[in-house]
């Protein structure tokens, strides 16, 4: 399990997170939404252990945590296959074995052998993000942290990768934290959604029990509209003035 206890964080004098308490339910996908600069990425970095919170503590009892970053963060000087096997290399796995695993992961993410031989500079944004996802999945994590992984992609590509991600999460029975500023995306993918205000506080929290396969366009739009009718959500996204 992953528990945030009284987490607050400051960068210099600026407070980006304020008293976050939350327990991530195992086997669920938790979405964290909020306006830009509300501290969602900071919260994820704290969950990943990349950052020490100024106050409070995180308990992470998952065996292995892997993270997918906003910009794909692939290494330009390695081909896609080497990029996917980077996490395995860090574990000290032998070359032949890690290539075998990375090849299988790449295939399951619909990357051809030809694509896997290319350098990131030769791949499209969507392909690079697949590589980044593959790199995270290759270490067989039980907790997956996703920091706005699809925010740079166009609508069609975004949908394709969301479906791919959902398939992998269900297949591997992963627990995940998914950060996004796109409510449509959050409603499509997540079981729990937390709304952070620009002050870094959880102002709204909902659970979506509808099975993911039943969430069609209509349901998603409907659900987002319902969320946005909440005064605190409106305030978090500063929608009040325009509404």
């Amino acid at each position: 399990m992953l528990v945030f206890k009284n987490i607050s964080h400051q960068f210099g004098l600026e407070r980006v997170l304020n008293d976050i308490n939350y327990r991530v339910i195992e086997g669920s996908v938790t979405g964290i939404v909020g306006p830009s600069g509300c501290g969602k990425s900071t919260l994820l970095a704290i969950a990943a252990g990349l950052l020490e919170p100024s106050e409070g503590s995180v308990t992470n009892t998952f065996q292995r945590t892997a993270m997918v970053f906003q910009e794909d963060c692939t290494l330009a000087w390695m081909n896609a296959l080497d990029n996917i096997s980077f996490g395995l290399k860090a574990q000290g796995m032998a070359r032949a074995l890690r290539y075998e695993k990375a090849l299988a992961i790449g295939k399951s993410l619909q990357l051809s052998e030809d694509d896997l031989n290319k350098y990131p500079g030769q791949l499209s944004g969507g392909m690079r993000q697949r590589v980044a996802l593959g790199r995270a999945l290759a270490v067989i994590p039980d907790l997956l942290l996703l920091d706005e992984p699809f925010s740079a992609l166009d609508v069609g590509l975004k949908r394709e990768l969301q479906d791919l991600l959902l398939g992998q999460i269900q297949l591997r029975k992963l627990t995940a934290i998914f950060i996004t500023h796109d409510l449509l995306e959050a409603v499509k993918i997540c079981d729990q959604i937390l709304v952070l205000s620009s002050g870094g506080e959880i102002v709204h929290q909902i659970a979506i029990s509808e099975p993911k396969s039943a969430r069609n366009e209509q349901y998603i739009y409907h659900k987002v509209a319902a969320m946005l009718s909440d005064a605190q959500v409106q305030q978090a996204f500063s929608l009040k003035a325009s509404c």
């Binding site: 970095a45 990943a48 990349l50 945590t65 892997a66 993270m67 970053f69 963060c73 290494l75 390695m78 980077f86 996490g87 290399k89 860090a90 574990q91 790199r135 270490v139």
Partner: peptide
């Protein structure tokens, strides 16, 4: 990129090399 490497617990020597 350093954050990425750290998120996979890459060793110091691996970070230097790769």
């Amino acid at each position: 990129l350093l954050d990425m490497a750290n998120s996979f617990n890459a060793s110091f020597s691996l970070k230097i090399k790769d």
